[in-house]
Simulated assay, not measured.
Amino acid sequence: MLKVNDLHHKYGAIVSLKGVSMEVNEGEVVALIGANGAGKTTLLRCISGILKPCGGDILYRGEAINGLPSYKVAHKGISQVLESRHVFPKLTVMENIQMGAFMRKDKKKIPDDIEELFEIFPRLRERVDQKAGTLSGGEQQMLVIVRAMIANPTLLILDEPSLGLAPIFIEEIFHIIPRLQRMGTTILLVEQNASMALAIADRGYVMETGRITLSDTGQNLLHNDEVRKSYLGEQ
């Protein structure tokens, strides 16, 4: 579904991506792990069109999308949930969700899709008329995921979905991601909690200083000695 080939990016004189190559197959959950500053978010933002790479290719279903503006990438079926939760704070939960559906043409199906997502996120059903800015951090994270999902994406990009959340919400988010996969959504996941990310991932990549240094199945990476020492805190 997604193929990144020899991708390069610079912030001025600082080289942030140094020939990154990776792929995501349809129906997979693919985890991307690495230390802060490794280039993970930069890679995601190049894929979604927020940043423009200075070299290499990004192919989505065989079509080149590198350099396209983000709204055109979204039209292709890619939705990204940015890190740090970006809700519209003065809009209600329902209004936030409806904002995610503005590009859809099948308007009559949207209420049924919202209802299906409320089955997965029942907390939000209870808060449909509440201003998004008054939700807890975990509830806001659920809201931005639902807002991305209501766009009916074929690829969902999640950037640090557990960042800053209480443990109870982290567990809930990681129970929800496989359910989204079972709905037919392919997922590319960047996550600081490497053990939880790799536990639910079909495959994973390790990124260091702008390069992919290791790739394998999620389970193999979870039990890789180098990964366990560097990212799981084991000696």
Rank of each mutant, 00 (worst) to 15 (best):
Y71H: 15
G133V: 11
S162M: 06
A38S: 15
L214D: 02
R61L: 01
A13E: 14
K90V: 11
G77L: 12
Q80P: 01
I177H: 07
F121S: 02
H8T: 09
L43F: 11
P167A: 05
G27H: 13
K52Y: 13
V24H: 05
M99P: 00
P153V: 09
N224Q: 00
H223L: 09
P178Q: 08
Q192I: 05
Q141H: 06
N96M: 04
E23L: 04
V87N: 06
P122T: 13
K10Q: 10
R211P: 00
K108T: 05
F88T: 04
I65P: 01
S230N: 14
E115G: 00
I14G: 00
N5I: 13
Y11V: 01
E191Y: 03
G27T: 12
G27P: 12
Q235V: 14
E171S: 12
V128L: 15
M196T: 08
K90Y: 15
A166V: 09
I114Q: 02
H8G: 07
T209Y: 09
I157N: 05
G233E: 08
T134S: 14
E116N: 12
N25L: 11
V24P: 07
I50H: 02
P53V: 11
T42M: 08
Q130C: 08
F121P: 02
P69C: 01
K109Y: 05
H86K: 15
F102A: 02
F121N: 01
L124W: 07
R211D: 00
A35H: 10
K18R: 15
H9D: 07
F169A: 12
P161Q: 01
P53M: 06
V30P: 02
A199T: 14
R211L: 02
Y60V: 04
V93T: 14
L163H: 04
E226Q: 14
Q80A: 00
T92E: 07
E26D: 12
A64K: 15
N193P: 01
G137K: 02
E172G: 02
E191D: 04
G34Y: 05
C54K: 10
A201Q: 04
P167K: 08
A38E: 11
A132R: 03
I50T: 13
M22S: 03
N220M: 12
E208Y: 06
H175T: 06
I110Q: 07
G184S: 06
G137A: 08
R179K: 15
I212Y: 08
E28N: 05
S215Q: 15
Y71L: 05
A201E: 03
I110D: 09
I170E: 07
I114W: 03
A197S: 13
D159Q: 12
R179V: 11
H9S: 04
L44N: 01
F118D: 02
F121I: 04
P153Y: 08
R211C: 01
L68Y: 09
V146R: 00
K109S: 15
R85T: 15
F169K: 03
D216M: 04
G233T: 05
K72S: 09
L163K: 03
L2F: 03
F121A: 02
D112S: 14
G184V: 08
A38M: 09
I120N: 10
E63H: 07
E171L: 00
D57L: 06
E160D: 10
D57F: 05
F88I: 14
V4Q: 10
I168S: 10
L156S: 06
L59D: 03
